[in-house]
Computed example of a mutant assay.
Amino acid sequence: MAPVDEARTAGQPGLRERKKRETRVALSQAAIRLCVLHGWGNVTVDQIAAEADVSVRTFRNYFAGKAEAIAASHLERMLRVADDLLARPAGEGLWDSLLHAVLGQFVPPDNSASQNERWRQGVRLMLAEPALAGEIVKANAAAQQELARAIAQRTGTDTERDVYPKLVASVVAAGSAVAVEHSLRADGSVQLGAVLAQVFEQLAAGLPVP
């Protein structure tokens, strides 16, 4: 086989995986959008598939139901946090890098949706749905595992030998979740970015007593 053919063949699995990941993201975002706007009980898998412009069969190839589809967005976001962490300058402090990575994925460039009370209320109701809780736990466990790998690579530690990367990953996941919940329950003037900055400032300082 010619070298160019080898390179093309070697690149195909990456392309397929990228396309699959894009489809997963599209389905997950469609599920979130519909459930936030119309309510959990008023959204079907058929509607989610139509919103994402795919067949119901395609949806079933990726997710068992809408709860799993929604939880997938959390895992995807934390995967991007891990990628962003590894892309930060090597000389930057770990907690500064983590804050930048989290802000880049948790705070959209356009904050209009987060300032819309109807949207915020819809998100609160969706996250309170009992059917979603178990899938969020599973997605969070997978997210922490991937983030721990990135932290280990960044700090020169090992996820099997050292407790540090797993500990930091779990703290980042918990701190981010606290910030999201706090901003959703506060009035509209409380911005998620500001809460995240406060959370990471406290974490970097070792959680001193106020």
Rank of each mutant, 00 (worst) to 15 (best):
D5I: 08
E6T: 11
A7D: 11
A10G: 06
A10M: 13
G11Q: 10
G11W: 09
E17I: 09
E17A: 15
E17M: 14
E17H: 13
R21T: 09
E22S: 13
V25A: 15
A30Q: 02
A31Y: 07
R33V: 01
R33N: 10
C35N: 09
H38T: 07
W40N: 09
G41V: 02
N42Q: 12
V43R: 03
I48G: 02
V54M: 03
S55D: 06
R57W: 03
T58I: 10
F59K: 07
F59H: 07
F59R: 04
R60Y: 15
N61L: 13
N61M: 11
G65S: 07
G65E: 06
K66V: 00
A67N: 14
A67S: 13
A71V: 01
A72K: 08
H74N: 12
L75K: 11
L79M: 11
R88D: 10
P89M: 05
G91P: 07
E92H: 04
D96S: 15
L98S: 06
L99W: 01
A101D: 02
V102R: 06
L103D: 06
G104H: 04
P108T: 03
P109Y: 09
N111G: 08
A113F: 10
Q115P: 00
E117H: 08
R118K: 12
R118W: 07
W119E: 05
R124W: 02
R124T: 01
R124C: 06
L127E: 09
A128Q: 14
A128T: 01
P130N: 03
P130A: 04
G134I: 00
E135Y: 10
E135P: 02
E135C: 05
V137M: 11
N140Y: 02
A141G: 10
A143M: 01
A143N: 02
E146D: 10
R149I: 09
A150M: 08
A152S: 06
G156K: 09
T157H: 13
T159I: 15
E160N: 12
R161P: 00
D162H: 13
D162F: 03
V163E: 15
V163H: 14
Y164K: 12
Y164V: 13
Y164F: 14
Y164E: 15
K166V: 02
V168C: 04
V168G: 04
V171A: 15
A174D: 10
G175I: 05
G175E: 02
S176K: 10
S176E: 13
A177F: 07
V180P: 01
E181I: 07
S183I: 02
L184C: 08
A186Q: 13
A186H: 11
D187A: 04
G188V: 12
G188F: 00
G188E: 14
V190Q: 13
G193V: 02
V195Q: 07
A197Q: 15
F200Y: 14
E201V: 00
Q202P: 00
G206K: 05
P208W: 05
P210W: 10
